[in-house]
């Protein structure tokens, strides 16, 4: 059951976006404006995959991102009218020298172009060590669904030579078909993340040593040598995938010697969302080289 949560409006300090249209790609940075400086984004997260939920299109991301970005209490299912864009881009020289969480931007100003879909946090399922996912849905019906991931150039390891641009997800992994330990999988981190781009590694533990719950079972990744230590801050909520198959939603890292990354597996998330809204769908592409957007189930 969806419970009404905090509603954030313009009175909180920043004008809400009026941007219509745009595409809800996975892989893009996801944020809201900082009330203390409306021209700047709050510390970001990353969108995972396009989703259709409760009659609206949007994206999946990590549940704790709503807590970090909006102060929503852990585990609270909520509806809010906060509206912001995906993929706030630097235009002109951009910088956040005074906002230490984006060290890869070092001069000038941010400008939030909101070139992509205006989304609002809508459904959140997150408690510490528990399910960690959320749906951000479109504000405007003009938002386009997407089965694509936009992976910014960067990162340290490619997948089949892929180093940036649109990546086409053509299916999602069922738990029964889940890749084995040793499979090479990849994480996409948005352009506002500490280390945006593609980061890959081997599945080391299944189930993982962190975030093991009754309904969700994370998987640990030992980063590939070139990818260590993954996307870093701002990569939460981003996509994990291998070949053209979506796997899960990035949650965080364990802080042991290897700094394993972990993600929420997509099928349990999908099943739980369907229990809230039976028409829930995930978006993917009809072919690995592109083609039309279709709906998928794990």
């Amino acid at each position: 059951m969806i419970k009404e949560g905090p509603t954030v409006t313009e009175s909180d300090g920043c004008a809400l976006s009026t941007q219509t249209g745009g595409t809800a790609n996975g892989g893009r940075s996801l944020t809201v404006a900082d009330p203390t400086d409306c021209s700047a984004p709050k510390p970001p997260c990353t969108a995972a995959f396009g989703v259709y939920f409760n009659g609206k299109q949007g994206v999946l991301t990590a549940g704790h991102c709503a807590t970090v970005l909006l102060g929503v209490p852990q585990g609270q299912h909520f509806v809010t009218d906060t509206v912001e864009g995906l993929d706030l881009r630097c235009v002109n020289p951009c910088s956040v020298a005074t906002k230490g969480y984006f060290p890869n931007y070092t001069s000038a100003e941010y400008s939030a172009t909101r070139s992509y879909a205006a989304l609002r946090p809508y459904y959140n399922d997150y408690t510490l060590g528990w399910d960690d996912y959320a749906v951000w849905r479109e504000r405007y019906a003009s938002t386009q669904p997407s089965g694509e991931l936009y992976i910014v150039p960067g990162g340290t390891a490619g997948l089949n030579g892929f180093f940036g641009g649109f990546f086409h997800i053509t299916s999602f992994a069922k738990d029964s078909q889940f890749p084995n330990v040793g499979t090479w999988v990849c994480q996409g981190a948005g352009n506002l993340a500490l280390r945006g781009g593609l980061h890959c590694g081997f599945i080391e533990n299944n189930p993982g040593i962190t975030f093991t719950t009754t309904t969700h079972r994370s998987v640990d990744i030992e980063w590939g040598v070139l990818s260590k230590p993954g996307g870093g801050e701002g990569s939460s909520g981003g996509p994990w995938f291998y070949d053209n198959i979506g796997l899960g939603i990035h949650t965080g890292v364990s802080t042991g010697p290897n700094f394993w990354g972990s993600f929420e597996r997509i099928e349990p998330v999908f099943i739980q969302l369907q229990q809230v809204s039976s028409t829930t769908k995930l978006y993917c592409m009809s072919s690995a080289t592109g083609g039309s957007t279709v709906t998928c189930v794990p």
Binding site: A62, H64, V68, G129, G232, V253, G256
Partner: peptide, 28 residues
């Protein structure tokens, strides 16, 4: 124990896992 430590709101924590939103926070 081995992990990253954080001092926040007057309390010291050792983290077994870190959530990777823009501002890091302890997962466990």
């Amino acid at each position: 124990l081995f992990g990253k430590a954080v001092f926040t709101d007057g309390v010291m924590w050792l983290c077994g896992s870190i959530l990777q939103s823009g501002i890091p926070s302890c997962g466990e």
